[in-house]
Design a protein around this nucleic acid. Sequence first.
DNA 1: ATAAATATGGTGCAAATGCAACAGACAAAA
DNA 2: TTTTGTCTGTTGCATTTGCACCATATTTAT
Lengths: 214, 214
Amino acid sequence: MNFEENQLFSGIAPDQVDRMLPCLEASRRDYPAGKLMYSYLSGQASAAVLLEGKASVVRYESSGSRTILESLSPGSIFGAGLDFHTEILGSVHVICDTPCRVLFLNYEKMIRPCSSACPRHLDLVQNILAILSRKSRLLGERVEVLSQRSIRDKLLCYFSQLSCKTGSSTFLLPFSMMDLADFLSVNRSAMVRELRSMREDGLIAMTKREVTLL
Amino acid sequence: MNFEENQLFSGIAPDQVDRMLPCLEASRRDYPAGKLMYSYLSGQASAAVLLEGKASVVRYESSGSRTILESLSPGSIFGAGLDFHTEILGSVHVICDTPCRVLFLNYEKMIRPCSSACPRHLDLVQNILAILSRKSRLLGERVEVLSQRSIRDKLLCYFSQLSCKTGSSTFLLPFSMMDLADFLSVNRSAMVRELRSMREDGLIAMTKREVTLL
DNA sequence: ATAAATATGGTGCAAATGCAACAGACAAAA
DNA sequence: TTTTGTCTGTTGCATTTGCACCATATTTAT
């Protein structure tokens, strides 16, 4: 199996990866865009790593509204053992935004040192560590944005994160207006209204999906 | 140094821990309740583990409002390399709720395999992995709550998490009303108002800090 | 090219939330 | 005990947000 350059197996030779996979109860799958890739339900694999593609962790409320809980990119780790847990309140799923390649794993097997068969298991653990710390940093950012009390503050906080990451006050939004609203967990038309008002107040400039913080 | 039973060094003999500490650039500190323990600023230790006590990661907005970003308990890991990053928008600090004992560490040194001096370094990495995955699970829960759109839904989501954890529909709130509001990132009086209305609607019962989901 | 479907921007109105202020409860300190 | 300070519950009012529409732009399918 060829995993090319991905964070999970970086530094481990392909033939050694092959020997490790059974011991992790690993199974690789491909999904087309728009497909449901994973549900946070018991009986599902406890962990998964996105090898290729983009996907979103979304919750559909009984009211019909949707929330984007997390955006996944190659190298992202997710699963019932790691992040969300299904509440009775709504169902949480992972949906592919683009065609995706995923590796499902047994989380318990992954983190415990295994008997002998896997000489590179500890390299794997190091890699998972790097992936997990990135994840908690991203979730921390998410908490920062969502804990802002007004739509304007949520937008400003999110924009300043993007600006920080790109190192420029001008950046491209990775979302459509609808998805951005679901990501910030606010009403779409209220958000558009607020964006207009922020433009009028001279806080931002915006053309299409290109935003500049002023 | 005696770290008793804490997650970071579990499974590692005390004398071996002592030999590892310098290589992690570790320094232990004690703080009284109410004290500022850590700030998310450059120049600070990149990681820290709470050994004893309880603490809160809080942000103070320029508007004066406060947000509790995370609640830390013994075994929690935090720090600039791992979760929040200082935005221009407000300052993020860790404040002791009770007297605390903290271990500051160099995160980079901690996760990289070191030359030779530390035979148990890989056990340490395994332990950090467990701590980190718990952290991302907690942050995921936090995102679930904060992404609820109304105060009522935030409360219900948080209550059902507590109910889930205790395995009972009756549980004790770990917060005062003021802190709960800052944790849910909503106005305190609006929250109290909503709690009353939920009681009237027969959704919950409440006496002091004891809540029952109905 | 045309039609259909979907995304965006906008508005009035209702509902939810925030804010300020106050009184009583409770706890800590003198 | 009294005093002081903090927490809680409550209310009226201003502001924000959500919601239900609609019109137009943009994309996708036929």
